[in-house]
Computed example of a mutant assay.
Amino acid sequence: MSTSPNISCANCRISELCLPFSLSNSELNLLDEIIKRKKPIQKNQTLFKIGDTLSGLYAIRSGTFKSYIENAQGEHQVTGFHLPGDVIGFDALADKTHPGTTQALETAMVCEIPYDVLDQLSNQIPRLKMQIMSLMSAELNYNQRHLLSINQESAAQKLARFLVKFGDRLAERQLSSKEFQLPMTRTDLGNYLGLTVETVSRLLSRFQQNQWITLDKKFVTIIDHSALLQLTD
């Protein structure tokens, strides 16, 4: 049962991202009955970690997260950054345990959808099952495109594409696509793009010198969007 009675899928401003298919009021009520709206997750706190048993899927209401896997030596590989409206936890569906860790980059709020109940409910609401499949497919496609970028693009292309796509994702949330805060560290950004932190810093400086962007600590302003797009092409 929801722990926040004043919040529901019907009045959530980002529900169209995690639930873009139109559900009836009765279907939304059924979903609200199983959703657990958890307490705030603080910066650097983990939502789940490698080896944890699958308990549910998580829809991000506010804040940002990063996901990473690690090898036997404890070296991390960042696999994704997640924004409000994203649904995470699909990585555990196959083996019912999480192969990686997801950690808050800032104070965040999530809605937990218990998996066992969700599985039953999705059989009652065909459009909900369709949405889960759609989200899984979108995540797979995004990861494939990222892998292609990592293997085939230059360092400058990788960073330019990331800035453009990050802005696009913010625009989907009715936020500015050209003025935004990067919540991740440059180390994490470089790790995700397959670049050293020195390369990330050098390229950001070059983009700024070219007057494509301005940078104030973590705050980015895209001045010449077309130049970044042209570089990615």
Rank of each mutant, 00 (worst) to 15 (best):
P5H: 07
I7M: 09
C12L: 09
R13V: 14
R13H: 13
L23S: 10
N25M: 09
L28C: 06
D32R: 06
R37E: 07
P40C: 07
K43D: 13
F48T: 04
G51P: 01
T53I: 11
S55P: 00
A59W: 08
R61G: 08
K66A: 06
S67Y: 04
E70A: 08
Q73C: 07
T79S: 05
F81W: 04
D86R: 02
G89E: 02
F90M: 11
D91Q: 11
A92T: 06
G100N: 07
Q103T: 14
Q103S: 08
T107P: 07
M109Q: 14
M109P: 00
V110W: 02
E112V: 01
I113G: 01
P114A: 07
Y115H: 15
V117K: 15
D119L: 12
D119G: 00
Q120E: 13
S122M: 15
R127C: 00
M130D: 11
Y142Q: 14
R145W: 01
R145V: 00
S149T: 15
A156R: 14
Q157F: 02
A160P: 04
A171T: 10
L175V: 00
S176D: 12
F180L: 06
L182C: 05
T185I: 09
R186S: 08
G194L: 05
S205R: 14
R206D: 12
Q209I: 05
L215A: 01
V220N: 06
V220P: 02
T221Q: 13
I223W: 06
T232Q: 03
T232K: 02
